[in-house]
């Protein structure tokens, strides 16, 4: 069964492009435009990996991932690997993000992100 990856990004262009790439590479994908939806989604859906934008409307990517990880922990499931993607250069939040997962800067090379994903799942 294909590994399921959740892509959280408020920019449809990014989610669409990335999902296509992932699906082509043999993954199944879930998408979410914001943190709240993503948290809802995780409750009923199995996710093997999260790719999240940091800057999101409402609660940001880092906070969203934090909540999701708490929920997963509450269900006694294995921790989920996370790759943050960002085009924004806030050193502080980027550093915080790096404590929970990898950080890849937009725009990224397909090869680079696929290598990262494959190193986790």
């Amino acid at each position: 069964m294909a590994k399921n990856i959740l892509v959280i990004d408020d920019d449809g262009m990014v989610t669409k492009s990335l999902c296509r790439l992932l699906e082509k590479s043999g993954f199944s994908t879930e998408t979410s435009e914001n943190g709240v939806d993503a948290i809802e989604l995780i409750k009923n859906t199995h996710i093997d990996m999260i790719i999240a934008d940091i800057r999101l409307p409402g609660i940001n990517g880092v906070e969203t991932v934090k909540k999701i990880k708490e929920i997963i922990k509450g269900k006694h499931k294995h921790d989920v690997p996370v790759i943050f993607i960002t085009g924004y250069s806030d050193a502080q939040i980027n550093a915080e993000a790096q404590t929970m997962g990898d950080l890849i800067l937009k725009p990224f090379d397909n090869q680079k992100i696929l290598e990262k994903i494959n190193s986790y799942i």
């Binding site: 990014v14 492009s17 296509r20 085009g87 924004y88 250069s89 800067l105 725009p107 090379d109 397909n110």
Partner: peptide
Amino acid sequence: AGGVAHEINNPLTAVLTNVQMLLA
């Protein structure tokens, strides 16, 4: 420039991802 740069990053991501996908 910083602001503009950030805004450009998303579309650039789409472009790069897709073009590399096609080239794959």
